[in-house]
Design a protein around this nucleic acid. Sequence first.
DNA 1: CTGTTAGCGCGTTCAA
DNA 2: TTGAACGCGCTAACAG
Lengths: 337, 337
Amino acid sequence: MATMADVAREAGVSVATVSRLLNNQETVSPDTAARVFAAIEKLSYEPNILARNLRRNESRVILILAPNVTNPYYAHILSGIGDVSTRLGYSALIFTTGDDLEREREGLDMLKKHRADGAILLATNIGGEWLLEYSTQFPLVQCSEYDPAVDVPHVSIDNYQATVDTMEYLISLGHERIAIISSENEYISTALRLKGYRDTLQKHGIMPRNEYIVFASRDYSFKSGKSKAKELLNVSPRPTAIFCISDTLALGAITSARELGHRVPEDVTVIGFDDVEHTTMFHPYITTVAQPCYELGKHAANMLYTQMNQGKEIHRQVILEHKLIIRESSAPAKTLD
Amino acid sequence: MATMADVAREAGVSVATVSRLLNNQETVSPDTAARVFAAIEKLSYEPNILARNLRRNESRVILILAPNVTNPYYAHILSGIGDVSTRLGYSALIFTTGDDLEREREGLDMLKKHRADGAILLATNIGGEWLLEYSTQFPLVQCSEYDPAVDVPHVSIDNYQATVDTMEYLISLGHERIAIISSENEYISTALRLKGYRDTLQKHGIMPRNEYIVFASRDYSFKSGKSKAKELLNVSPRPTAIFCISDTLALGAITSARELGHRVPEDVTVIGFDDVEHTTMFHPYITTVAQPCYELGKHAANMLYTQMNQGKEIHRQVILEHKLIIRESSAPAKTLD
DNA sequence: CTGTTAGCGCGTTCAA
DNA sequence: TTGAACGCGCTAACAG
C-alpha cells in the first residue's frame, strides 16, 4: 500500500503538497498538481482512512438508533440512510433500542466514546428533554418522530395534514361514524394523527365519540389491530369506517371484520398508514397514506452530513410529501345501515 | 477528553503500563493495576478508538453485501449481524448490490480501500470463483447462500434436507402430484431445494414432471408467485400440492388458487419457505420451513470476528437447524379428485 | 514487572 | 507556491 510519502517522493514534492491537493482546494500550481496526480495514478495510491480519521478526529461512522431493523418501515428508512452514508464515506453503527429509553441513552453514549460522529434517531418519544444533553455536544437528526419541544433538527411528513386529508376523503365518501385505531405509544405522529382525526370531525360538526377511539399496542401489532377492531365493530351503532394509524393495524382490522362477517369495503371501510406493509398482497388492497420512507432516510443522512461537515446551520425541520393512495378497502358509506 | 498519558501521569506509571492493562492480559502487578484503574475512573478515561485503529491498522468496520435491506429475510439477518457487531465494537458498512455482480465487486473493493476489515456476503450466486481474489486477502463469510466450489467459510441451513423433510411430509399426507415453484436465480439454496424435490419424488417412485416445475422471478416476487401458480393450476391433471421456495411465492400461490376457485388447503396444499413473511396474517396460515435468520446473522458475524481477530482456522461450514412448521395451508390429499 | 521510545499516515502550522 | 517538522493517541518492541 503506497503511502503519501511515496507519492511525494515519486512526484518530487513534499507530503504537504500532496495533502493540500487532496484536501483543501488550496493553491497548488497546475504543473506540480499534474505531477502529483500522475504519481498517485502510478502508485495507485489511496489515502489511509485510519490515519486521516485520527488526524481529523472523526470516526466516519454515523450512529443509527432504531427500535428494530426488521419492521419494514424502519428497514426502508435504514435503506435510505445506508445508501447515502455509504456514498459519503460513512459506515453505520446500528443500535437497536427496542423502544427502550435506557437503551437509547446507552446508544447515544457511543457518541461520547467516539464510536460515531453523529446520530440519527428513528423513533424518539415525546418528552425528549434528555436529548439536549447530547444535542449540544453532537450532531443529531430525528427521523419520522420527534419532540416538537426539543430543538433537534428533524425530517418527517406532515402527520396532521395527512390525517386531515384522509378524514376529508372519508367524509366526502359520506362516512360520519368514523373510528380510529390509534396506539398507546408516545410518538408525535400518533398524537398528531389523533388530533387531525378529532379536528376534522369537529370541523364537519361531528362529535368525536370516545367509543370510536381505541389504542392498539405500542408497536402496532397485527394482533392488537385485530382485537381493537373487534371492540370497535361491536359498538352500537357500528362505525362505517375505521382509520388505522398503520398498515399492520389495518390488516388486523380487515381480518377482524371478516371474522365478524362484515365485508370490506362494502360494510366497513378500513384505511391504513405507511404503505410499507403488504398492502397489495390480498384483496382488498388497502387504501393508505404512503410515506416516503426511503427518502426520509436519505434526507436524514444528508442533514446529518451537512451538520457534521459544514457546521453551518441547517434546516431544523424538513417536511416531505405524503400521499393518500386510494385502493380497494374504502368505499362510500351505505345510506342505510 | 483524557488521554492515556493523563492516566499514566495520574497513576504515576508509564503509558506502556496503561496500554498493557487495557489490551493484552500481560503481567501487571495487582498493585499498579489498581492505581491505574483508579486513575481511569477518576479521569473517566476512554481509549481513543481512532488512534488505536491507526496503530493496529484496522477499521473496526465490517462490510455487509446484500441485494437489499428491506426484504424481511435480509432484514432479519442484518439484525443479527448488527447486534453482534455492535457489541464487538464494530460498525457496519451496508452495501446494497441489487443482486448485481458489478456492484458486488464494487462493494468488496471497500476492503481494498481499507474501509472495512472483513465482509459478510448475503447472497452470492453460484459461480463465485471471482471471490477468491478477495478471500485470499481478506476475511470473508458467506451467509445463507454460497458457492460450494469456492473455499470461503459459510453459514446456512441444510436446504436439501429441509426440502426432503417437506416433501416427505407432503407424501405422507398422500400427495403425489406435487409441484414446485422454484426461481430463476442462481442461488445454491434454489438448486438444492430443486434437487431435494426431485430426489424425494424419485425415492418414492414418483416421476418428476416438467409441467410441475416452474421458475418464478429471481427475487421471489409475490406477483410471479401468483402467475406461476396459475400456470400450475391449469395443468392437467392439476397438482394437489405446491411447494414454494419462499413465503412470498406461497402467498402469491394462495391468492392465485383462490382466484381460480380452489380452496386452500382443501383443494390444493401450499407450502412456503423462510417463515419471515407474514405467514400468519391471513387464513390459511402458511405451512412453511422456518429459517433461523437472526441466528444466521449472528453466526456470520461471529465467524467473521474469529477470522479477523484470532487468525485461527474456523469452521468452514456451519449448518443451523431448520424447522418445518405445519399450519393451515397443508392438508391430506383428497382420495378422489 | 515496568519505562522509554519509535513510529502508524496524515493534516497543518510556520517559514521560506 | 512549496517544504520541514510536529503531533493526533496509541501499541509494541526493546531495555532495564
